[in-house]
């Protein structure tokens, strides 16, 4: 089968529509993952074992099971419990929860890396918990986390094709419907692959820059 450039030009606008949804889902999912991760990290630090242990188990459970099955769970099971979500919302929640458990580990390592003396100094200055976090701990903990957080952003971006399984019309889904309709697989699937490869190669360069700028965590 030959590569057909005319067909490529013809399908490009549809693929670009899909790419927009892919990027939208990645950005929204990542914002949710950043928030969920921080919440998990803080709850797991709680001194009350009745709170921190179950949270730890839930996070381990989410991290140990496939994102695809979690997406099915959110998309098919929740409506039976009376909560109907649009495919895109279900997808964003799935991505956010799954990657939230990964970013939680990054936050945990970053917070643990802040020296003990900083906590004691905050106490000595009579800062309350909120002030300690926002003015002493987080400003020191966040910059070294940036490369690792960016790494998960790229990893999540590469997982967005899974959303096609719950009927989100993102890039992969558009490519598959074009392929099934025209019965030509080679161009749409290869273009999707090329799209991801180009974005990842660019982001690798960006990541190296972030690592030089903010230093590695570990």
């Amino acid at each position: 089968m030959e590569w057909d450039w005319a067909f490529v030009i013809q399908i490009l606008p549809t693929l670009i529509e899909g790419a927009k949804i892919t990027i939208l889902a990645t950005v929204l999912g990542y914002i949710l993952a950043a928030i969920v991760g921080l919440a998990i990290a803080i709850v797991r630090r709680s001194k009350n074992k009745l709170i921190s242990r179950p949270m730890g188990f839930v996070a381990e459970f989410i991290r140990g099971t496939p994102l695809l099955v979690q997406l099915y769970f959110i998309f098919y099971v929740l409506p039976d419990l009376g909560l109907t979500l649009s495919p895109l919302v279900a997808g964003v929640i799935g991505l956010g929860l799954h990657y939230g458990t990964y970013t939680a580990e990054v936050y945990r390592a970053g917070i643990d890396n802040v020296a003990r003396g900083q906590w004691e100094a905050a106490k000595a200055c009579n800062l309350n918990a909120w002030q300690t976090w926002t003015q002493v701990i987080l400003p020191q903990a966040l910059p070294p986390m940036i490369p690792a957080l960016a790494n998960y952003f790229i990893a999540m971006f590469k997982e967005t094709p899974l959303l096609s399984a719950i009927t989100v019309l993102e890039l992969m889904n558009q490519a598959r419907s074009i392929a099934n309709y025209n019965y030509r697989y080679i161009e749409p699937i290869t273009l999707v692959g090329a799209f991801f490869l180009v974005i990842s190669l660019i982001s690798v360069v960006g990541l190296r820059w972030l690592e030089r700028r903010y230093g590695r965590i570990d």
Partner: peptide, 22 residues
């Protein structure tokens, strides 16, 4: 390494299943 880490597993699987036969 860069190729397989750079493209999504999902895309690779579809490529192996639908494009390789061609």
């Amino acid at each position: 390494i860069e190729f397989f880490r750079g493209t999504s597993i999902f895309v690779q699987l579809f490529w192996a299943y639908f494009v390789l036969p061609l």
